[in-house]
Simulated assay, not measured.
Amino acid sequence: MPTLTRLIFIIAVIAGSIYAAMFALTVLVEPAPRQISVDVPPDLLKPQSERDKP
């Protein structure tokens, strides 16, 4: 049984390290705001009823 306990302990330490790294990323890293632009096709600006007409 000591090998099972050791395995569970190692897996818990690895999982804890991953969790700590994710937590540190959320707290310490601040994303830089930037502008984005999205091209919208002119068809989508028309009302739905006009788009359905041939």
Rank of each mutant, 00 (worst) to 15 (best):
Y19G: 03
I14C: 14
E50Y: 04
F9E: 09
L7K: 12
L45R: 03
V13T: 15
S37M: 14
T26R: 12
P42A: 13
P33V: 11
R6S: 09
K46V: 03
P31F: 05
Q35R: 13
P31W: 07
K53N: 07
D52H: 02
A21L: 14
L4C: 00
I18L: 12
S37A: 15
V27N: 07
R6V: 04
L7G: 04
P47M: 03
Q35V: 14
D43Q: 10
A32H: 05
A32G: 00
E30R: 13
A15Q: 02
P33G: 08
L4M: 05
I8D: 09
F9K: 06
G16V: 07
A32I: 10
E50S: 01
A24T: 10
P42Y: 10
L44S: 05
D39I: 10
D52M: 10
L7E: 12
A12N: 03
L4S: 06
S17E: 12
I18S: 01
I10M: 02
K53T: 09
A15F: 09
L4H: 00
L4K: 05
T26D: 11
P33R: 12
L28K: 10
P31E: 07
S49D: 07
F23Y: 13
V40L: 13
G16I: 06
R34I: 05
A20M: 02
P42H: 08
L28P: 01
E50L: 12
V40G: 01
D39N: 10
Y19R: 03
P47W: 02
P54V: 08
V40A: 05
F23G: 04
K46S: 02
P47G: 02
V13I: 15
I18R: 01
A15H: 01
T3G: 03
A24F: 10
L25Q: 14
P54E: 11
S49T: 00
Q48A: 14
S49G: 00
I36M: 14
Q48I: 14
